[in-house]
Simulated assay, not measured.
Amino acid sequence: MPKRVLQGPVVSDKGDKTVVVRIDRAFKHPLLAKVVRRSKRYHAHDENNQYKVGDMVQIRECPPKSKLKRWEVVTAEELAAAAADRQQAEADKADANE
Protein backbone atom coordinates (compact mmCIF):
# COMPACT_ATOMS: atom_id res chain seq x y z
CA MET A 1 0.00 0.00 0.00
CA PRO A 2 1.55 3.35 -1.01
CA LYS A 3 2.19 5.99 1.60
CA ARG A 4 0.23 9.21 1.43
CA VAL A 5 2.13 12.30 0.27
CA LEU A 6 0.84 15.79 1.17
CA GLN A 7 2.15 19.24 0.27
CA GLY A 8 1.99 22.50 2.18
CA PRO A 9 3.95 25.39 3.69
CA VAL A 10 6.08 25.14 6.83
CA VAL A 11 4.45 27.21 9.58
CA SER A 12 6.93 26.47 12.39
CA ASP A 13 10.51 25.24 12.59
CA LYS A 14 11.17 25.79 16.29
CA GLY A 15 11.57 22.12 17.23
CA ASP A 16 14.85 20.29 16.74
CA LYS A 17 14.59 18.10 13.61
CA THR A 18 10.87 18.93 13.42
CA VAL A 19 8.79 21.19 11.19
CA VAL A 20 5.07 21.87 11.38
CA VAL A 21 3.36 21.83 7.98
CA ARG A 22 -0.12 23.25 7.30
CA ILE A 23 -2.19 21.20 4.87
CA ASP A 24 -5.22 22.96 3.38
CA ARG A 25 -8.15 21.13 1.85
CA ALA A 26 -11.38 22.23 0.24
CA PHE A 27 -14.55 20.17 0.09
CA LYS A 28 -18.19 20.65 -0.72
CA HIS A 29 -20.37 20.92 2.38
CA PRO A 30 -22.96 18.12 2.30
CA LEU A 31 -25.90 20.29 3.39
CA LEU A 32 -25.02 23.83 2.34
CA ALA A 33 -23.51 22.73 -1.01
CA LYS A 34 -20.80 25.35 -0.84
CA VAL A 35 -17.04 24.93 -0.83
CA VAL A 36 -15.59 24.90 2.68
CA ARG A 37 -11.87 25.30 3.41
CA ARG A 38 -10.22 23.53 6.31
CA SER A 39 -6.60 23.20 7.35
CA LYS A 40 -4.70 20.84 9.59
CA ARG A 41 -1.18 20.98 11.03
CA TYR A 42 1.15 17.99 10.83
CA HIS A 43 4.45 17.56 12.69
CA ALA A 44 7.05 16.17 10.29
CA HIS A 45 10.61 14.93 10.76
CA ASP A 46 13.30 17.13 9.17
CA GLU A 47 16.60 15.32 9.72
CA ASN A 48 18.95 18.19 8.75
CA ASN A 49 16.87 21.18 9.94
CA GLN A 50 17.04 22.50 6.37
CA TYR A 51 13.47 23.81 5.96
CA LYS A 52 12.40 27.21 7.28
CA VAL A 53 9.06 28.95 7.78
CA GLY A 54 7.38 29.63 4.43
CA ASP A 55 9.08 26.82 2.50
CA MET A 56 6.75 24.56 0.48
CA VAL A 57 7.48 20.95 1.38
CA GLN A 58 6.05 17.53 0.69
CA ILE A 59 5.56 15.12 3.57
CA ARG A 60 4.78 11.39 3.60
CA GLU A 61 3.61 8.92 6.18
CA CYS A 62 6.20 7.00 8.18
CA PRO A 63 6.37 4.86 11.30
CA PRO A 64 6.07 6.94 14.50
CA LYS A 65 9.23 8.86 15.35
CA SER A 66 7.86 10.53 18.50
CA LYS A 67 4.58 11.27 20.24
CA LEU A 68 3.38 13.64 17.49
CA LYS A 69 5.60 12.88 14.49
CA ARG A 70 4.10 10.38 12.06
CA TRP A 71 5.28 12.17 8.92
CA GLU A 72 8.65 12.93 7.34
CA VAL A 73 9.73 15.59 4.87
CA VAL A 74 10.43 14.17 1.43
CA THR A 75 13.02 15.66 -0.91
CA ALA A 76 12.41 15.95 -4.65
CA GLU A 77 15.05 13.29 -5.35
CA GLU A 78 13.29 10.75 -3.11
CA LEU A 79 9.96 11.43 -4.82
CA ALA A 80 11.51 10.99 -8.27
CA ALA A 81 13.14 7.72 -7.24
CA ALA A 82 9.86 6.41 -5.79
CA ALA A 83 7.97 7.36 -8.96
CA ALA A 84 10.57 5.60 -11.12
CA ASP A 85 10.32 2.47 -8.96
CA ARG A 86 6.53 2.54 -9.22
CA GLN A 87 6.63 2.88 -13.03
CA GLN A 88 9.13 0.03 -13.27
CA ALA A 89 6.92 -2.20 -11.12
CA GLU A 90 3.87 -1.41 -13.29
CA ALA A 91 5.84 -2.16 -16.45
CA ASP A 92 7.02 -5.49 -15.00
CA LYS A 93 3.47 -6.36 -14.01
CA ALA A 94 2.17 -5.51 -17.50
CA ASP A 95 4.87 -7.70 -19.07
CA ALA A 96 3.95 -10.58 -16.78
CA ASN A 97 0.28 -10.34 -17.78
CA GLU A 98 1.05 -10.61 -21.51
Results as ranks from 00 to 15, higher is better:
7 Q>R: 13
92 D>S: 11
35 V>Q: 11
69 K>A: 02
57 V>M: 01
12 S>G: 03
83 A>Q: 12
86 R>M: 12
49 N>I: 04
58 Q>A: 10
45 H>T: 02
36 V>L: 08
64 P>A: 09
5 V>E: 06
44 A>Q: 04
90 E>M: 14
1 M>N: 09
93 K>A: 12
20 V>H: 03
53 V>N: 05
46 D>I: 04
97 N>F: 11
59 I>K: 00
84 A>S: 12
62 C>P: 02
29 H>A: 02
75 T>V: 03
46 D>N: 07
59 I>P: 01
92 D>R: 10
11 V>I: 12
23 I>C: 07
92 D>P: 07
17 K>Q: 15
21 V>K: 02
72 E>G: 00
77 E>N: 05
27 F>G: 06
5 V>H: 02
14 K>P: 08
76 A>S: 13
21 V>A: 04
47 E>A: 15
54 G>H: 04
24 D>P: 06
66 S>A: 07
76 A>W: 09
20 V>A: 06
81 A>C: 06
48 N>S: 11
60 R>M: 11
91 A>R: 14
45 H>E: 03
34 K>G: 00
70 R>A: 02
37 R>W: 08
88 Q>K: 15
93 K>F: 14
60 R>S: 13
77 E>F: 04
29 H>P: 03
30 P>H: 03
75 T>R: 06
29 H>E: 00
39 S>N: 11
12 S>N: 08
93 K>N: 12
8 G>N: 02
75 T>Y: 03
52 K>C: 10
33 A>P: 03
13 D>V: 04
41 R>Y: 14
53 V>S: 01
12 S>W: 05
53 V>Y: 04
58 Q>L: 05
5 V>S: 07
41 R>Q: 14
93 K>L: 15
80 A>P: 00
13 D>K: 09
7 Q>H: 09
67 K>E: 11
73 V>D: 00
75 T>K: 06
58 Q>P: 01
2 P>Q: 09
58 Q>F: 06
29 H>R: 04
24 D>C: 12
38 R>K: 15
31 L>A: 10
66 S>W: 01
13 D>G: 12
81 A>S: 10
23 I>E: 00
41 R>G: 05
66 S>P: 02
65 K>R: 15
74 V>G: 05
61 E>T: 05
14 K>L: 11
87 Q>H: 08
79 L>T: 02
17 K>A: 10
10 V>Q: 05
40 K>I: 13
10 V>I: 07
75 T>C: 10
14 K>F: 12
80 A>C: 01
86 R>I: 12
92 D>T: 10
61 E>G: 06
